[in-house]
Design a protein around this nucleic acid. Structure first.
Length: 455
RNA sequence: GUGGUUGUAGCUCAGUUGGUUAGAGCGCUGGUUUGUGGUACCAGAGGUCGCCGGUUCGAACCCGGUCUUCCACCCCA
């Protein structure tokens, strides 16, 4: 028989892995709650029309489509079959698709439940998403996103809070040295405007985004290939050598963008955020301006966030987000501004693992294993176990009357710190022999003594 | 989606220009030790060499396809 397997880009999680994932999730969740966000959940699949076209052409390709039930080919006529136009046929045979991110379903949720929601609405959502991407390290076809978004407020204090929220989570995870990079879509628009390449904004920003990867010459080459004029590229030269403190960078941006109203507004917004965050202070993260930061979905209209792991860790971004003024607009609800951030759980896991940052106490394990000596002894053990459990002490009985060596070995393998030996002698005396598996020491005590030591 | 890469025991990996019965370490099972695990010693089990097909007298090794892994591009958490 063929060995069973799971699809490419998906994973099983062992008890140790799930425990560690919960450790991360619990910290994120507690910070979300601490900042006033409330949880919602949405279905793992949506109507295709909700998702399609929201992530660009590339995004559509990466959305997992769900085949219709029943005789789905009936709706496809022979002309379409012979044309072999996959996109046309897809819309006929598939009407549902797996969630690609949490932001678009959230926008749908807000529009759909607008009458029940009190704005500004702060929601968090921790659920898996699916992308039909080709897997790589830190890139899966099923992975968890942890999103916190606010809709219904244009206040820049939200951005300030979200930066603090990033800092709070990474600090609690002991993940020191994370860099929160910020940019503003209006600054990018302003640059495009100033250099006269407004129509090529996306091409321009995508190329600019690759600066640290392919270098100045590479970016210029790509811009030329996309049809951006030589004079425009020349004007943009200051961006390649942007350095110094945040304020210095903002100053040189002001010089560059003085002619652009949009651009100046972007600078103003970014200044506000940088300024307020610096007055409030951050624990362990660093906030930095990155004018080349253009990643993210086409719908960002203001702030853009991206978090990179501490230096030396080879991992893409471990978080991202931004402000989108028009997101609910695509579902017919105007003038509702939203801003949010996302944590990439799976990538954070890999970073914590690489840096060995999981606390050793992250093992929700049994505290004490009772050795099984037979039926009467087991009942004696179970009575004690019942009381230990009532006290919140994780306890269990080895289920079979196996050889002691095997039972002790089991405790050892599972890293159970204590064992209890209670045979005929102990039963007669009403005591328990408690053994510390690490030191090898053992003591015969009453049940109260056991509770005291294990509490 | 494009190009490349990887796959041999539960795990990490050897395996000669294609040649008899495919190996090691760790792990596992049993024993030395029937109320004492982690260390030691002894013995043992476990592999249609990812899968399918082809070339050959003969394939883990060569060729094609496919799946998987990782990498680059694309894009992204």
């Amino acid at each position: 028989m063929k060995k069973p397997s799971i699809p490419k880009g998906t994973r099983d999680f062992s008890p140790a892995e799930v425990t560690r994932r919960h450790y991360i999730m619990d910290i994120i969740k507690s910070c979300f709650t601490n900042y006033g966000f409330q949880p919602i959940e949405t279905p793992s699949f949506e109507n295709s029309e909700t998702l399609m076209g929201k992530y660009g052409e590339e995004g559509d390709r990466l959305i997992f489509k769900i085949l219709n039930s029943g005789d789905f080919l009936r709706k496809v006529n022979d002309v379409m079959m012979t044309e072999k136009d996959s996109i046309k046929i897809t819309s006929k045979i598939s009407e549902k698709a797996l969630r690609y991110d949490l932001t678009v379903p959230f926008a749908r949720y807000v529009v759909q439940h607008q009458n029940d929601i009190t704005f500004p609405f702060k929601r968090y959502q921790i659920q898996p998403v699916w992308r039909a991407d080709r897997p790589q390290k830190g890139r899966f076809r099923e992975f968890f996103q942890c999103d916190a978004d606010v809709v219904g407020s244009k206040s820049l204090w939200q951005e300030v809070e979200l930066v603090q929220l990033y800092d709070a989570v990474f600090s609690k995870l002991k993940l020191n040295g994370a860099t929160i990079k910020m940019n503003n879509r209006k600054i990018l628009s302003g640059i495009a405007e100033v250099i006269g390449a407004e129509d090529k904004l996306i091409d321009f920003t995508v190329a600019l985004d690759k600066l640290d990867k392919i270098g100045e010459d590479g970016v210029k080459k790509e811009m030329r290939e996309k049809g951006i004029s030589e004079s425009a590229i020349e004007k943009v030269q200051p961006l390649f050598s942007m350095q110094g403190t945040a304020n210095e960078q903002l100053e040189s941006l002001k010089d560059l963008l003085s002619a652009s109203q949009v651009g100046m507004q972007g600078i103003e917004e970014l200044s506000f955020i940088i300024n307020k965050v610096s007055q409030l202070g951050l624990e362990t993260a660093t906030l930095a301006i990155d004018v080349t930061l253009a990643r993210g979905l086409n719908y960002y209209t203001g702030a853009i966030f991206e978090v990179s792991a501490p230096e030396g860790v080879s991992m893409g971004s471990i978080g991202g987000g931004g402000r989108y003024d028009d997101l609910t607009g695509i579902f017919g609800m105007k003038d509702v501004s939203g801003v949010g951030i996302s944590f990439g759980l799976d990538r954070i896991y890999l970073v914590l693992e690489e840096l060995d940052l999981f606390p050793s106490t992250v093992t929700a394990n049994t505290k004490v294993l009772f050795i099984n000596f037979g039926e009467a002894e087991s009942l004696y053990a179970m009575k004690a176990i019942k009381q230990l459990r009532a006290k919140g002490i994780n306890a269990e009985l080895y289920p079979d009357n196996a050889k002691m060596g095997k039972q002790m070995g089991y405790a050892d393998k599972r890293d159970i710190p204590y064992t209890i030996l209670a045979g005929g002698n102990e039963m007669e005396a009403g005591t328990y022999t408690l053994k510390n598996m690490k030191s090898g020491e053992q003591d015969t005590v009453q049940l109260n003594g056991v509770i005291q030591i294990l509490s």
